[in-house]
């Protein structure tokens, strides 16, 4: 109990630091680059005077750290700001000073609308990844150097060589357009998540196939596994109770590290399938220079990463008591 408490306290502290670091970097990056937020809001028609006035009202002429502190203050109150572009009910609203700022969509609402869809997609993708990677990786690890190992190697080399955006296009063309088996493009029900999830799974599985087969092969080489047979344990029991347990830790850690890559895959795939999730929101926000949305997304996605990694490390420490943090 004491261990769990100090563990979470310490790790959450570190996590907050990471989130601050990331959000400040992104914040500063967005402030120093060309492209005045006031201009994005007001549109190209506004006069320089109005522009300057708006910018000053919004605090855009203050030093960046000050702006950042102000922003953090709002975030602490649960206010992530409002989109520059998106209107409340969806759709974008460019330029024009007339619209009251209140009508623009709140960043938090945008995230709340899109995040569940993305979690669904990511969850499905992980299921597919497990279905592909577990059999290949375990067989490859147990029979190192023999044909399942080769199969795992070739399969993972092929999967990792398929560019995700290209695979997405080909699948959309063949499976949805030509054969009409599974719908994709856009979103109406969960069936629309199948193809995007499959593409993400193909992208993720090579890493897990390799990591699984390497860590299982390494564990099988450990003296205690050989000795367990001399001690009279059955091969099946050794595998299910000891080898899998020991091999799980590196794979879990890889999972934690790959959360970022998973998000990256989600982003590209959602963009191609026009899947209205968190990733599509990100791409649109970036392309439209919708700074408050980008900042909110950075904080939220980093927090997700941090929390999942804390959980992963906690589970790892439960499995292997030697792990220290």
């Amino acid at each position: 109990m004491g261990f769990a408490l100090t563990f979470f306290a310490r790790r959450l502290g570190q996590g907050v630091l990471i989130v601050l670091l990331v959000s400040f970097t992104i914040f500063a990056l967005l402030r120093v680059v060309p492209g005045d937020p006031a201009r994005i809001i007001l549109g190209p028609m506004a006069t320089d005077e109005v522009l300057e006035q708006t910018a000053r009202d919004m605090g855009l002429r203050d030093p960046i750290p000050l702006q950042y502190m102000r922003y953090l203050g709002q975030v602490a109150k649960g206010d992530f700001g409002t989109s520059f572009i998106k209107a409340k009910g969806g759709g974008s609203m460019g330029g024009g000073r007339d619209e009251a700022r209140g009508e623009r969509a709140r960043v938090l609402d945008l995230v709340a609308e899109t995040l569940p869809l993305t979690l669904q997609l990511a969850g499905l993708a992980l299921v597919f990844t497990a279905l592909i990677a577990l059999p290949l990786g375990i067989a490859g690890g147990l029979m190192a150097g023999r044909w399942p190992d080769k199969l795992a190697l070739y399969a993972s080399s092929i999967f990792v060589s398929l560019p995700n955006f290209w695979l997405a296009i080909v699948l959309a063309l063949v499976v949805t357009a030509k054969l009409g088996w599974i719908p994709s493009i856009g979103y109406q029900n969960i069936a629309y998540a199948i193809l995007p999830a499959f593409v993400i799974a193909i992208e993720m599985s090579p890493l897990f196939i390799r990591s699984l087969s390497v860590s299982i092969a390494d564990t099988m080489r450990h003296p205690f596994v050989e000795l367990a047979q001399v001690r009279g344990l059955s091969p099946r029991r050794i595998f299910s109770h000891h080898v899998l347990r020991n091999a799980a830790v590196p794979v879990l850690n890889l999972f934690g590290v790959q959360i970022g890559a998973l998000l990256g895959g989600v982003l590209v795939v959602e963009y191609i399938f026009d899947y209205p999730g968190f990733g599509l929101l990100t791409v649109q926000a970036v392309l439209q220079r919708d700074f408050p949305v980008i900042q909110g997304i950075a904080i939220i996605s980093t927090s997700i990463f941090v929390v999942i990694n804390i959980l992963v490390d906690f589970v790892s420490a439960q499995i292997d008591p030697r792990i220290e943090y």
Partner: peptide, 27 residues
């Protein structure tokens, strides 16, 4: 193999030179 396994564990005991890596480190 199965009969040998049972016999090995029950009637025969083996103690090795490497106690540090004789047990599963996670249990």
């Amino acid at each position: 193999p199965e009969a040998r396994r049972i016999l090995r564990g029950s009637a025969v005991g083996y103690i090795g030179a490497d106690p540090g890596s004789s047990f599963d480190p996670t249990l």
